[in-house]
Design a protein around this nucleic acid. Structure first.
Lengths: 157, 157
DNA sequence: TTAATTGCAAAAACTTTGCAATCGG
DNA sequence: CCGATTGCAAAGTTTTTGCAATTAA
């Protein structure tokens, strides 16, 4: 399974750095995987606490999230206001996000050409890219529909 | 002057919303302009306090920054870790950023094609974009030079 | 054994808010 | 005069950290 492979690689990563293989760290990976694609840390803390409080404390969750980020299993993908939304990468190919500011829906997309153009920009500036993030905020089709409805209702009122 | 025009438009914006034209709000615009292109709120608070404490309190700075954001004179352009970097837009055309994670340097760029491709992606998803942000994190040419130097030094050690 | 990890509570960093005083229209 | 704004201090959020106890190697 994908997750097992990830855990195995994480184990190697920990060993390489002289860190320890603890139950908590691997449990957190499982909880992230079971929570779904995107999450905020406090959400994750609550999710873990709601299931089994003994898995990890808030501090351990924060510390493990940082570690998983260094390892590359999760990424900060959306920054909106004071919120940070992480994504469980788990070997998924790179992609960008459309974020509906109305309902919070997150749509993933990938455009090879955009990536290529970014590389070109970096070359032009002799800049070595490490990672990037493209966030497009707007209104999704469902919310647009809903808005039109509201407008109609208001018009009749 | 550019700033005067901006202030004039901001005045109209305030009136339109039934808000008041206060000295503080306009002073803050001047201080942002004099601070430079990019800033964090706490930096701005300190900058203002260092010049003339009577201009505005921390709360007023926070409240005015929010207002200026709604108005469109400033934008949240970089979100890195727990930091938020704002940019004074002041009629400048839209652009994206390269951020050096080594020295913090910010390089602006604009690629028409990237914008066009984004529009196409949005159309494909029937998504109405409101705004977007593309951040490319990496190492700038100066820092690369510095790193090579370090490597050389280490090699000799 | 011993160095890393954990949980806890405290602190830090950043931001928002309630309220009384003040100011703008 | 009335309602918006301000400054202050207090409270809210989110994240980090010091420390003693615990655990992995």
């Amino acid at each position: 399974m994908q997750i097992e492979e990830l855990k195995h690689k994480f184990e190697q990563f920990l060993r390489q750095r002289g860190y320890k293989i603890t139950k908590g760290r691997f449990e957190i990976i499982d909880r992230i995987a079971s929570y779904g694609q995107h999450f905020e840390i406090e959400e994750l803390v609550r999710w873990i606490a709601s299931q089994d409080r003994s898995v990890a404390s808030r501090s351990t969750v924060y510390r493990t999230v940082r570690l998983l980020q260094e390892f590359g299993a999760i990424r900060e993908v959306i920054k909106l206001g004071n919120r940070t939304i992480y994504e469980f990468v788990a070997g998924k190919p790179h992609h960008e996000h459309l974020i509906c500011v109305e309902c919070g829906k997150i749509i993933e997309f990938y455009k090879e050409e955009i990536e290529d153009l970014q590389d070109r920009v970096c070359e032009e500036h002799d800049f070595t890219p490490i990672n990037h993030r493209l966030e497009i905020f707007g209104i999704c089709s469902e919310c647009k529909g809903r808005k039109d409805e509201n407008r109609r209702l208001q018009a009749y009122a």
